[in-house]
Simulated scan of single mutants.
Amino acid sequence: MYELLSTSDRQQWLMASLRRQPLIIVLRPKESDLLGPFLQSLLCHRLDQLVDLGVRHIEIAWMDHLRWSDLIATIRLRHPTVQLGVASVTSQRGLQAVIDLDLPYAMSPLLDQGLVSMAHQHNCCLVPGVMTPTEIRQALVLGCHLVKLFPALVLGLDYHRQISAPMGDLPFMIAAGGLTVADLDPWLSAGYDAIALGRGVLNTTAAVDDLRHWLT
């Protein structure tokens, strides 16, 4: 589906999709999710729940495990309409798995020039993690039009405004790390383009209700 798209096209596609729904939910598989029957796993339950709520962008964290790629293939068959990305890509091995599966995009908690170069070479959309103005500028120079601000909660709600004044135009910025559903509207209003949340949004009935309310 995505094999004919260039890196730039994939970045534009992801930005357009996130403008329609500026939310990403990140799920981290456990060993039991990989070894047991998928339909009986907690991960499957979480995915079904998110899709039923109307979440469009879901990331599955990379794991260096023989059955990880099979897990991703199973998820894609069960939920073909989900824009499925990969989180926590910090190695060439992880990025190669994303490339081999032709997944829409991957995210990293760090800015690694080697990984960015590898992604561009294979027309893969890799969203690097950044924290400082220097890293943000370096990501732009490397051709990354989307970045993940991480850890967002440590940097604070006002960080976007503080750096946009001296830096001017900023890349499409996804805030991630320590945020909750209650942070969605304040952080989006503060200038961030999208928000990434962890699986904790499904840990309580109240949290699920808050997410459902936001999505509707």
Rank of each mutant, 00 (worst) to 15 (best):
Y159F: 15
L170M: 10
L155C: 07
A165T: 15
L149K: 07
C144F: 12
C144P: 08
H120D: 05
L110W: 08
L157G: 00
Q113G: 07
A182Y: 06
V130G: 03
L115T: 02
L149G: 10
T134C: 12
L146G: 03
M118H: 11
S108I: 07
G143P: 01
T132M: 10
D112A: 05
A175V: 12
L142S: 09
M118K: 01
V181T: 05
L140Y: 05
F150I: 10
L155Y: 13
H145W: 09
G129Y: 11
G177E: 07
C125K: 01
S117K: 15
S108R: 05
P128S: 11
A119K: 00
F150V: 00
D112P: 00
N123P: 05
M118N: 06
M167D: 14
L146P: 03
L157C: 09
V116S: 04
V130R: 05
T134S: 15
P109D: 01
C125T: 02
L126P: 02
C125Y: 00
A175M: 08
M167L: 15
S164A: 15
M118F: 15
H120N: 09
Q113M: 12
M173Y: 08
L142P: 02
T134I: 12
L146T: 13
Q121Y: 13
G114C: 10
L149H: 12
L179M: 09
M167V: 13
T180R: 13
T180Y: 03
C144Q: 07
L115V: 12
Y159G: 06
V147R: 03
G168Y: 11
I163S: 02
